Simulated scan of single mutants.
Amino acid sequence: MKTKIHFIVNPIAGKGNNGLSEALLKTYFPETEYSISIKKTAFVLHATALTQASIAEGAEIIVACGGDGTINEVASCLVNTSILLGILPMGSGNGLASNLKIPKNLKKALSVIKIQNVVTIDTGTINGEPFFSNTGVGFDAHVISDFEENTTRQLFSYLKSTLRTLKKYSYQTQLQIKYNGTTELVSPFLLFISNSNEMGYKMSLTPRASLQDGLLDVVIVPKLSRFKLGLFTMLFLFKKHHWLKEVRFQQLTALEIKSLENTTLKAQKDGEFFVPKEPIIKLAIRPKNLNVCVL
């Protein structure tokens, strides 16, 4: 029987010129051995609907062709199933693909899918919805909110969004966080929760995080003076932000975040802006429940 491989393509990911074609795919996946389907997304959450249709059609490998947002939509449908997730990294940041050492070169990435070397990774959840790279409440969420207003999604656009957000970002929101039987009050500049060791663009707030350790890596950065904020930024660029004593790290299996003002918190989920339906955010790790093709 032929192996069914479905490609879910975000045609505007990255620079919007991915070079993926049926002719190219047939050179890697000949018709005598494989049944290939290419589906292109047209709107937000379309990748989810297309993936669900592919599952119903009996696809054995479903390939997310785009950035971390596209991967999130596809992979969310594949957790706790035997269907393999393939990744063709075509986005701007490509944090998860980089963590998994999946090449950005299209032909090399296709070879990874053909070889079908599989690892099983952990996934996180935020209010029950899966995330695979990271999520956050605070500065990063506001940067993503600004970034999504850009027509182009490149590193320069991300840097501009970061600078704009720095000028207007407020630290007034007070949060109650609960973990391991402990309750704290914090008013963080950044509250970042990661499953992987990369955010995208080779940058990382959690360089020691692992996709297979059954833990979420949490970074809490309090309100900082302008000098300390500049120092934090410089250290972050060299992955040495742990040198700053104000920066706290935790490894947890679950975390609850609540706004004391009972307001809905802004968050980001795998680089996409995310607004929870309630003022409480519950995060958890789900060990080894997603099968991914890797090198």
Rank of each mutant, 00 (worst) to 15 (best):
T125L: 14
T120W: 01
H142F: 10
N150H: 15
T165M: 10
E149S: 12
V112I: 10
Q116H: 04
S98K: 10
G91H: 03
V137N: 07
N105I: 10
S98A: 11
S92Y: 03
Q154V: 07
G128E: 05
L155K: 11
K160H: 09
F131K: 08
T165V: 12
Y171R: 08
S111K: 13
G124H: 03
H142L: 11
L96W: 08
N150V: 03
G136S: 15
G91Y: 00
L96Y: 04
V118F: 04
Q172T: 12
G136K: 07
P103L: 08
K101L: 13
D122R: 00
S92F: 03
S133Y: 00
N105T: 08
L166I: 13
A109T: 02
F147D: 02
K168P: 04
H142S: 14
Q154R: 13
Q116F: 04
R164C: 08
T135E: 06
T165I: 10
G128W: 02
L166Y: 12
F147W: 06
K107T: 14
K107F: 07
L166V: 14
L106W: 05
Y171T: 14
G124V: 09
K101T: 11
E129P: 00
I113V: 12
F131E: 13
K167E: 13
L163G: 05
E149R: 12
S133A: 14
Y169P: 01
L166D: 04
E148Q: 14
F139G: 08
L163I: 15
L166R: 08
L163W: 13
I113H: 01
H142W: 05
L100H: 05
N94E: 02
D122Y: 02
F147T: 02
P103S: 08
